[in-house]
Amino acid sequence: MVLGMLGLGAVGVVAGSRVQDGLDAALAPLQRLDPTGLSGLLPGNYFRIYTVTDGYPYESDTNYRLTVDGLVDHPTVYTMADLQAMPATRLVRTFQCVTGWRVDNVHWQGVALSVLLDKAGVQTAGKDLRFESFDGVYTESLTLAEAYRPDVIVAYSMLGGPVTQEHGGPVRLYVAPMYGYKSIKWMSRIQVVDRVEPGYWETVGNYAVEGWIGDSNGY
């Protein structure tokens, strides 16, 4: 019996990804009918909230500022209203964590990072980007080429509403083709630099700087 459970466990590991998809599809209508909300406690594809500091940093929409500076011709500070007034990009994409969990069909809305970079005017010496979080600790990086992809956005809306505090609101990055650790939360600064500065997990956890989904992310 113990051996049987080990076998089931192994099958679960290999097939679990697909089984969970099926289960989610089966449970979704039931969960919509559940008035207690208790079914929300069942395992499924939902966000696990990570933060590298104690608790979540807070900034109100009105006080929020996003600085774009470094090797640019026009350093700029954006307010929330500035960002929302710019042309919006909408994405419906999977959020995939490098540790395995994922959330399918997440609705995202924000400003394409390329738009902000074009406005700032990246100088020829500028090759890479460094992102800062107002949690005071977390940083991330992208190459300029990656940053210009159309599915990399500065998001102020996700899951059909404003980006909430635990999801990194008011404004976070969403790098759709990469693992979640590249999508920095509570983003306060985008700095154009001349070489890649590995981000928080890339330093502390030895994560790959190129966090493409599907890559083993090996050392």
């Binding site: 679960g12 590991v13 290999v14 097939a15 679990g16 990804s17 089984v19 969970q20 395992p43 995939q96 490098v98 540790t99 395995g100 969990w101 994922r102 989904i213 599907g214 083993s216």
Partner: peptide, 9 residues
């Protein structure tokens, strides 16, 4: 990656 997702499941 699918094993990680499966392990989480």
């Amino acid at each position: 990656l699918t094993w990680r997702t499966g392990a989480t499941f």
